[in-house]
Every structure is written in C-alpha cells, then in structure tokens.
C-alpha cells in the first residue's frame, strides 16, 4: 500500500489523528498534521511512497498552528520533532515547504551512519553523479533537468554516503525549485508534476517537483559514486566541463558536509575514498539540453 491508496479526505483523517507513516529512502517518517496544505502536499508529492505499518519511525514530525493570537492573526505554522520545536514558526502559507526543510534538517542532523553532503545526486546505470554547489548555482535546476531525461533521482539536497560500504544511498523526495527555475522546468518537463508556487519564502518563490515514479520505486537501490560535478549556471555560457583537483574537491565537500566534523576518522576516510573513486569536474552551463548531452557522455572513472 502507498499513500495514494487513501483519498485526500481519508489521508487528512489519518494525519489528523494517528499520523501517516511512510518510507522515504532508508527512513520511516511519521507525520501528523491537520493543516490542509500539508495534507494536500503529501497527497500530491508523496502519493507513491509506501505506507509502513511498523511500530517504529525514524522521525515523528508534527506540523501545526501555534496556540494564541498567531493562530488567527498572520497565522503561522510550527514544526515539532519528537515534541520539540527546533525552529521558529513560519507563515502558515509555507507549511508544506516547512515540512520539506524540516525533514532535510532531521536527516542531516541525526543520521550519522552516513556522511551527508549538501549536494544533488542522480544516477544512471548504477553510477552516481554528485552535484555539490552553493545556493544559486543551478544545482536543483540541473538535477530536475537530468531526472526529466532519464537519470534517476537520489536527492536534490542530501548526498547520503554509507560509512559501511561507501555506496550512495537514495533519498528520492520532491525537488525544490526556486524562482526562475520553476517556469524553466514547467516548460522543460511538462510531464512532471510540479506543485503550487509558494511566494515570499526565505529562498524566494519555491515550488516542488515530484520525484519520478521509477526513482521512488527503486529507492532501495544504492549506487557507486562515479562523478563529482560542481555545476554553475551562467547566462549565455557554452556548456563546459573542466577537470577539478581531487584534493580541492575533497576539502570543499568536507566544508559542505552536514556531519563531517561529527564523524571524525570515519568521515575523512569515507570522503577521501569516495573522491578517489570519482572523476571531479567544474561544469558551467546555460542550456539544459547541452547539459544533458554532456552528462550522457561522462566517462567512467573505472572499467
């Protein structure tokens, strides 16, 4: 059974009472909320995710309106993990984006059996491309473009690398599109399910692109990191792939990992092993079609 087994109304009833418990990648999420926007977002974006009947969930999340005046005046939404509220409330209109940000935070802050790097991750034929880059670099747009042309989505935010076998673990969830990239992807991938625009968030206007069905179904199939590509969108630029120093690459990843400092020796050894096994590039682009072509021709680092 998956979430879409329930009607929108039935899902709302479960989420308001016991909560809905579903799997995303290696994690089980238990979510409670009476907020219509959260129920709608889950129904639209997570319909194909499997429901879980286990007694245990990795994260017990609750999105709700605060008590008091902010329930009515300029209404807000709060997020709680295991009953604790780690963040300040956001405007109620941002309830579903808050769920997405909060779940990212939960994973990045707690799941230390993985080295977790801030990066988009896509896969083809068992080979994984890790796309780390600062905000505004076009990382999510490139990720969305690639998965609309046959690459499998692992994540658009969190690269999970197993400390045990150094394989990359999928966590396929909606791709967070921002500002101009929303209309770009609506035009580039008209078949994709893209939810409503949420305006005036701390990241500007945000919309979510549903993960492809195949990516959700194959969420238990890990991959081997083969490429680390730092994308950079530059208006009018010709697509160009430039080899990048592995040492600099490893240092950047260490600085942009969520839990590298927590992991100590294991983090260093995992990071260096992954970088050793990859080809590392800087990638400048302006046209998604050019990017798709170049990614299709990426050479494997191993036979």
């Amino acid at each position: 059974m998956n979430i879409a087994t329930y009607s929108r109304e039935r899902l709302g009833q479960y989420m308001a009472t016991d909560g809905v418990r579903f799997r995303t990648g290696p994690f089980v999420v238990d979510l409670r909320s009476t907020l219509p926007a959260v129920v709608e977002g889950i129904h639209q974006m997570y319909g194909e995710y499997p429901l879980i009947e286990s007694d245990h969930a990795d994260f017990y999340l609750h999105l709700k309106q605060p008590a008091g005046i902010r329930h009515w005046w300029r209404p807000q939404v709060c997020f709680a993990l295991d009953g604790h509220e780690p963040f300040k409330p956001l405007p109620l209109s941002q309830a579903f984006p808050m769920f997405e940000w909060a779940l990212n935070w939960c994973v990045a802050s707690h799941m230390h059996c993985y080295l977790i790097i801030h990066a988009a991750v896509v896969e083809r034929d068992g080979c994984v491309a890790v796309l780390p880059a600062p905000p505004g670099s076009g990382k999510s747009t490139l990720c969305a473009g690639l998965i609309s042309r046959g690459w499998r989505l692992f994540s658009d935010e969190l690269a999970l690398i197993s400390l045990k076998d150094r394989r990359v673990i999928p966590l396929p969830r909606p791709v967070g599109l921002k500002n101009n990239s929303i209309d770009i992807m609506r035009a580039y991938a008209p078949q994709a399910v893209i939810g409503p625009n949420y305006t005036d968030t701390r990241k500007g206007t945000v919309a979510h692109m549903k993960a492809p069905t195949t990516s959700i179904r194959r969420a238990d199939e890990s991959g081997r990191a083969a490429w680390i590509v730092f994308p950079k969108y530059t208006a009018g630029a010709e697509a160009r792939l430039t080899p990048r120093d592995p040492g600099q690459t490893a240092l950047y990843l260490a600085q942009n990992a969520f839990n590298y400092s927590v992991l100590g020796r294991a983090g260093f050894e995992t990071l260096t092993a992954v970088v050793d096994g990859c080809r590392c590039y800087d990638f400048e682009y302006s046209q998604l079609d050019d990017a798709i072509e170049i990614f299709a021709a990426l050479e494997l680092p191993y036979a």
Binding site: P246, G247, A250, F268, T272
Partner: peptide, 10 residues
C-alpha cells in the same frame, strides 16, 4: 591521517 595526492595531500 594522511591522504597523499599528486600535487597536494589532505
């Protein structure tokens, strides 16, 4: 912990 490369070491 050392991780030597061609031109640099981590």
């Amino acid at each position: 912990l050392w991780h030597p490369g061609d031109d640099t070491s981590l």
